[in-house]
Design a protein around this nucleic acid. Structure first.
Lengths: 345, 345
DNA sequence: TATTAGCACTCTCTTTGAACGAGTGCTAAC
DNA sequence: GTTAGCACTCGTTCAAAGAGAGTGCTAATA
């Protein structure tokens, strides 16, 4: 257990380092108003904090720098919310001003605004289309042997796939298929589609419409809507402003990580709702050594609709980012719910 | 006019610098077999070449480096094609192996393969959807006041827009509109769509179907398919491997340029078909100082379908890249023609 | 006359050492 | 328990020195 003085010194050290990116020395600290102790006292406390693993030195006679454990303790115990100015709230609200109808544009713009406000890179997970429901299914033949299948969801999203038509099928066959599918699949979630299609195929088979069987097979293959997260970036190059990425090697590896973030399983997948902070190696990726990711999810009640991630150095301004994400995610929750459930309902 | 010896020395100098990225000195050059002259002779020739503006020095007593004019002369007069190995041709052909039906995937994969083969970053311009023709038009209502308009093109591409429905319109109105549009607009190029829709609207107005006027207006606004080039990147981070981008500042500015390349008017717009090389400031962008862009277009006969760009330092391996682009663009021309005109015909 | 050897010179890069500053740990005094 | 004092450590900066690669010029050579 930490004493009050240790708590204070740890907090001020982390704050100062977040601010300046320079190792924090005892003399430096003692000059601050909040710290009414002499350098020697601070040195003793810092030595203890180092022994406990909250601080570390870059070399024997340098000032102290927070360790990963130090940051963890800081975010777990010392993170008081920061007041967000009216002006900033206004900026966030401006996302919804235009009353755009397309959710994609809202998400795109959100990514940019949050990045501008934080000066870090943001990544937003697009709405999971597989959670939308089929509104209308149709097929447009392109040639004798190919056609495009189109699914419109209740949210206005359109999925389309080209698939090949086995020989000897005619317009009338296709029309029958479209009718069959529309009868059965309207209202079904996109992620249930393959299973439901399978079921429809079975029924068709039983009803001696064996003729259509091939066609369903080909279509089924095309409509296997695989789950590849679509992500939107805001201020992708912001991260390069941080002094810790002055090395091109580091810059490359973090850029690479960002480009493949949608292939990293579970990066956006959060156990609990709300805000989650992953510090340094907690991201389970060598490229992310020295980086933190703050993720916030949004959505109404139990349904999680999407998430926002902010990438920065471990030395990032957790207080500010967390507070901003709080505002942003609750506003997004409201607005997207309105659009998806209220407006279109 | 350059003498043969000057020609030789310029060529070897450029080749060597492309290879090593180090200023080329006279002693160094004289060691090469192709150069049977003493350092002193080479020095004299180099001094002349420098006076003519083909070479420059980084400092008074350094070796020589090609100037932009030097590169220009090199690519204009000394670019002999490089033999592409069977293995490499195989790799390029592998793009078409799977007989994918979707052109987008072919383009995506092309971008990656060409980047792997060259070790530079590639940018591919997506097929211009506005050159496709309308195959089918339809509207799916989402709610009382919004609907999604869907256009399927003859190439299997699907464009869709959400638009708002003015009050007091019913399903029957919309059906009439869809019929009207399908009657008139099937076969029309996408880029002609706004103008054609306008014409249809006028007709409707004259036929005393004034009722539909509002609806057309709203739709028209939504369908104004603006021309934003879609681009695909291959090996976006390759450029950072080049020693000239070891400076984060430069890395940032080139990455930024790449992210906005689709907004740069005319970057892919080529006056002549075939291969075009832009060196350094020829790109008209400060961020591109020190970079060259090699662009190749593909398509059949007079119709240009798309283009590939390779981004590298001015010191890039022009010979190899040009040769590879030659193979790639002619293969792409064939394959995409087959798909778009033959197959789907 | 064209080419080359020789030489003095220039500039960059690396190494070295000294001075400086900020920080530390420890001990003794308050 | 807290702090002042002191010796020590390490990174940074700066200047000086030497090595290395290159140049321009001049005179000798083929």
């Amino acid at each position: 257990m930490l004493t009050n003085r240790q708590l204070l010194i740890l907090q001020v050290t982390v704050d100062d380092f977040i601010d300046t990116a320079l190792p924090v020395g005892s003399r430096q600290l003692s000059k601050k108003e909040e710290v009414p102790f002499s350098p020697a006292t601070i040195r003793n406390e810092m030595a203890d904090l180092e022994e406990m693993g909250f601080l570390e030195k870059t070399h024997t006679s340098s000032g102290r720098v927070p360790s990963q454990k130090g940051y963890r303790y800081y975010v777990d115990n010392m993170l008081t919310p920061q007041r967000i100015s009216q002006n900033e709230i206004k900026q966030i609200r401006s996302i919804f001003e235009e009353r755009k109808l397309e959710t994609e544009q809202i998400i795109r713009k959100s990514a940019e605004i949050i990045s501008e406000l934080t000066n870090y890179t943001s990544i937003m997970l697009g709405l999971d289309v597989r959670k939308h429901r089929v509104k209308r299914f149709s097929i447009v033949p392109l040639s004798n042997d190919s056609a495009v299948a189109i699914i419109v969801t209740d949210s206005g999203h359109v999925e389309n796939r080209v698939f090949s038509i086995p020989e000897n099928f005619q317009a009338s066959d296709i029309e029958r298929m479209v009718n069959l599918i529309n009868e059965r699949l309207v209202g079904v979630y996109l992620h249930e589609l393959p299973a439901m299609l399978e079921a429809v195929t079975m029924t068709v088979l039983q009803q001696n419409n064996g003729r259509l069987n091939n066609l369903f097979g080909s279509l089924n293959k095309a409509l296997n809507i695989e789950h590849e997260d679509k992500v939107y970036y805001g201020g992708k190059l912001q991260i390069l402003n941080q002094p810790e990425f002055n090395d091109v090697e580091k810059a490359r590896s973090i850029m690479n990580w960002m480009d493949h973030v949608n292939q990293i399983p579970g990066i956006f997948h959060m156990d609990k709702k709300g805000i989650q902070i992953r510090i340094g190696s907690e991201n389970n990726d060598l490229a992310m050594e020295g980086c933190s990711v703050i993720t916030a999810s949004y959505g109404i009640s139990e349904e999680q609709m999407g998430s926002i991630a902010i990438i920065g150095p471990t030395r990032m301004d957790y207080r500010r980012v967390v507070s901003l994400l709080d505002v942003m995610s609750s506003d997004l929750s409201k607005e997207l719910s309105r659009i998806l459930h209220g407006h279109y309902g």
